[in-house]
Design a protein around this nucleic acid. Structure first.
Length: 506
RNA sequence: GCGGGCGUAGUUCAAUGGUAGAACGUCAGCCUUCCAAGCUGAAUAUGCCGGUUCGAUCCCGGUCGCCCGCUCCA
């Protein structure tokens, strides 16, 4: 089905899921606020992840539960941490613009064919020899590639730029000098701004985990292999925030660093990949819109260049379709981070196995998921057009994810209906996020609940007063059945179960 | 960052160089014993700044934001 993102965005605003940040000031590019229902949805996803990781971690390949502990580290850390992690040096891209074509290139992706002459053509570094020769011919230059010296643009002094012919033009000297695009948010710790107290807002939550590896090991009685999990905000100065909340400058991550012996990485990589896929299916992304994909070598991060690489769990968002967008990456970070922090901090971070006396630097398998991206995927997946019902659309959330689990609706606003309804509401809200809605006719109230994805409505009518039963109205089928009022909590509890057991809903 | 498009109630849309109208939503009242978002009423808008003009939501410039394409996405 062709889902128009415009409709999704409009519903999100209209019903209080997601608003533009600073809306009354005209918004701010790359930032979004989560409204009353959005925060419930996001919290539900967050809590389920925390439960799946920290509270009830999965049974490992050996039949016993794996060991994972939680952490909530500071967003701002000692800036040296980001030097060590490679973000200060590597998390910025040198970019050049072509004045002629207005195109922009990453300087480190441009390859120059240097020669004795004064015209040096440039190409994308992956260009095939065939297309290079073709273009050389067009430019009336020597077509023998071996007569040139291949140089990366970043290795050339800017004084040579006047000789360079940009990749999409015919004249030389149109490239600007490289500009740094630093993707790290900077701030200052302390009221005086100077280079002395410059700090960075974390671009990933993972580093806080590595920085606390030793603290956790020394305080928590964990033994290899084990994991440390963390959920929190991260910040990146994206060049071009796009696609609603998909690529924003402030977002939320759910990351788990799994520390293990280097010889066991393959086993754990496969294990976590399977577990994480199961998770996304269980929370409701069970359709063909979910796919898994292994990264190509050319797109690997600085920390994953060695080892087993990275695999993504991806979702087919309306704006990426027919392609997919990343939801979670499962990376083998090797021992890159711990080794780097050991070098830079001077602290020993190796693990000494208490049984075998084996000393080694642990390797890391990292399932890193986007919480905010996950919430967006849930909304897109749930959005269901149904012309036959008054609302025209409903959100098909799994009950465990729905912002409201149920609405309690007295059929009329008379006291004999409102009384028992209020009583039921007060009892249920102790355990579930529920709404009590008294005003307006029943059809209108059902429609409203459909639109915010409330899976069940419990209606109190005259029969309730006689036999103590209420009507359950199912969101997806609109079918009704009567159940005893004192069974309502059990009923809801039962409906939540599949997801907490990490099972795909029927 | 470039190119193109766009910016009117919460949402989706109208209209106009002379100060804005609808539908739905929201709120209030009524009606309703299960899909009747029914009836009555109310509140709510020209993104922001500047220019031209007697007068600008409309024309012009800037800015901010959104969408599409490119670029980018450790």
């Amino acid at each position: 089905m062709d889902l128009d993102m415009k409709d999704v965005v409009a519903l999100c605003k209209r019903r209080g899921f997601i608003f533009p940040a600073s809306d009354i000031y005209g918004g701010i590019n790359g930032f979004w606020d989560y409204g009353p229902l959005g925060v419930e949805l996001k919290n539900n996803l967050r809590d389920l992840w925390w439960k799946a990781m920290v509270v009830t971690p999965p049974i490992g390949p050996d039949g016993t539960p794996v060991q994972i502990v939680g952490l909530d580290s500071s967003i701002i850390q000692n800036p040296k941490a980001w030097v060590a992690s490679g973000h200060v040096g590597g998390f910025s891209d040198p970019m050049v613009d072509c004045r002629e074509t207005k195109k922009r290139y990453r300087a480190d992706h441009l390859m120059i064919l240097k020669s004795e002459g004064d015209k040096w053509p440039s190409f994308h570094e992956e260009s095939e020899d065939e297309e290079i020769e073709k273009r050389l011919k067009k430019l009336n230059l020597d077509t023998n590639v071996s007569n040139y010296e291949r140089v990366n643009l970043t290795d050339l002094d800017a004084s040579f730029y006047e000789k360079i012919i940009a990749p999409d033009t015919k004249v030389a000297g149109t490239l600007t000098e490289p500009k740094e695009f630093n993707l790290m948010f900077e701030s200052h710790a302390g009221p005086i701004q100077s280079d002395e107290n410059k700090v960075y807002l974390r671009p990933e939550t993972a580093q806080g985990i590595f920085l606390n590896f030793k603290n956790v090991l020394d305080s928590s009685r964990v033994r290899m292999p084990f994991g440390i999990a963390q959920i929190g905000k991260a910040f990146r100065n994206e060049v071009n925030p796009r696609n609603f909340i998909f690529r924003s400058r402030e977002f939320e991550q759910m990351e788990m660093e799994w520390f293990c012996h280097p010889d066991e990485v393959e086993k754990w990589r496969d294990f976590w990949f399977e577990e994480r896929t199961k998770f996304w299916r269980a929370v409701g992304l069970a359709s063909d819109n979910l796919q898994i994909r292994k990264h190509g070598d050319d797109e690997l991060s600085h920390y994953a260049k060695e080892g087993l690489g990275t695999s993504d769990i991806e979702y087919k968002f309306p704006f990426t379709a027919p392609d997919f967008g990343e939801l979670e990456g499962i990376a083998h970070r090797c021992d890159f981070d711990l080794t780097a922090h050991q070098e830079h901090s001077g602290q020993k971070l190796e693990y000494m196995d208490p049984v075998t006396q084996d000393k080694y630097m642990p390797h890391v398998i990292e399932p890193a998921a986007g919480l905010t991206r996950g919430a967006l995927a849930l909304i897109c997946e749930a959005y269901t057009v149904d012309e036959s019902r008054p609302s025209g659309v409903y959100l098909n959330f799994h009950p465990a994810l729905a912002p409201k689990k149920a609405a309690i609706l007295p059929l009329s606003a008379k006291e004999e209906h409102v009384g028992p309804a209020t009583k039921l509401y007060l009892a249920l809200r102790e355990e579930f996020a529920v709404d009590l809605d008294i005003k307006q006719n029943i059809g209108k109230r059902y429609a409203r609940q459909d639109e915010i994805g409330t899976p069940y409505c419990f209606t109190i009518d005259n029969d309730t007063l006689e036999d103590g039963t209420v009507t359950v109205r199912d969101r997806n089928t609109m079918a009704q059945e009567r159940i005893s009022m004192d069974k309502v909590a059990d009923y809801l509890r039962e409906k939540m179960k599949p997801v907490s057991a990490m099972k795909v809903a029927a």
